[in-house]
């Protein structure tokens, strides 16, 4: 701002050039990322895919730290090494297109550390689209259901339903704020429209009272994905969960025993 005001005082070309030079000199020294003096630490390890295939080559492993990011790609055996890292605390990211990205937190590097971090990646359900969900039923409204099950009618004519369900006591339930989570699965039988139902089963294992209203939300997620504990939030996260492929929040009353 001051520079512009100053410039307005100069009415001729020469002084304008001088004014601009002045601005460049004072503004050119921005502060860069800090640079470490010693950068001899290493993070290395092996990455694999669940089920052992395909070949775990070209998985991108990135160390996020105080001096910016540094990446490496795995070789055909899934081995990687990121070297030349300076002192500090890092986060590690394992990514490959079509697979859930996973993270390791709180990796401390000091001096000449070599830290080994291995990981296993799970496939994302990229080809699966959530069906339309119509109505929520229990055994009183749909006799084929077991006493401890809830069934949601859908427009899907296939048993395969790679989804994860999150339960909560309020309508803001989502994958970051929930009480319980479980895999959903498609019913073995179909309804009178030849569609499979989404089954939410084994509900009496949870600390809910019979008749209690519970809200739930459904996300696309690999059923083999066991989840990992988020170290910061102490909740179970799922790397293959697709945030945008989710249902509306629905509700059911817990069936009475």
């Amino acid at each position: 701002m001051c520079q512009i005001i100053f410039l307005s005082f100069f009415r001729n070309k020469a002084s304008l050039i001088a004014g601009i030079a002045w601005i460049i000199l004072t503004c050119s020294c921005t502060k860069d990322d800090p640079q470490p003096l010693f950068a001899h630490s290493v993070i290395k390890g092996g990455v694999s895919f669940y089920n052992g295939y395909p070949e775990p080559v070209d998985i991108k492993v990135t160390a996020h730290g105080p001096y910016g990011n540094k990446s490496a790609l795995t070789d055909s055996s899934g081995n990687y090494e990121i070297s030349g890292l300076g002192n500090g605390t890092y986060e590690l990211e394992f990514a490959k297109k079509g697979y859930g990205t996973k993270y390791h937190f709180g990796i401390q590097l000091f001096g000449n550390n070599a830290v080994v971090k291995n990981e296993m990646l799970y496939e994302k359900m990229v080809d699966y689209t959530l069906p339309i969900y119509y109505e929520v039923h229990d055994y009183t409204t749909f006799s084929r259901l077991h006493g401890d099950e809830i069934g949601v009618t859908t427009n899907q004519k296939d048993r395969f339903m790679p989804v994860r369900i999150f339960l909560g006591s309020n309508k803001n339930v989502n994958y970051l704020d929930y009480e319980y989570t479980l895999k959903g699965y498609g019913s073995q039988w179909t309804d009178n429209k030849n569609n499979n139902l989404l089954i939410i089963g084994d509900l009496w294992q949870f600390d809910y009272e019979g008749g209690q209203e519970v809200f739930f939300i459904v996300y696309v997620c690999n059923p083999e994905d066991p989840g990992y504990v988020d170290s910061y939030l102490r909740i179970l996260r799922f790397s293959t969960l697709e945030k945008k492929k989710r249902s509306a929040v629905m509700r059911f009353k817990v069936p009475k025993k």
Binding site: H64, G65, P66, Y67, N87, G88, T89, Y90, E91, F105, G106, I107, Q108, L109, F110, S231, Y232
Partner: peptide, 10 residues
């Protein structure tokens, strides 16, 4: 308790 700075210490 060592705190190196950078990403959060756990």
């Amino acid at each position: 308790v060592k705190h190196l700075g950078g990403k959060p210490t756990l």
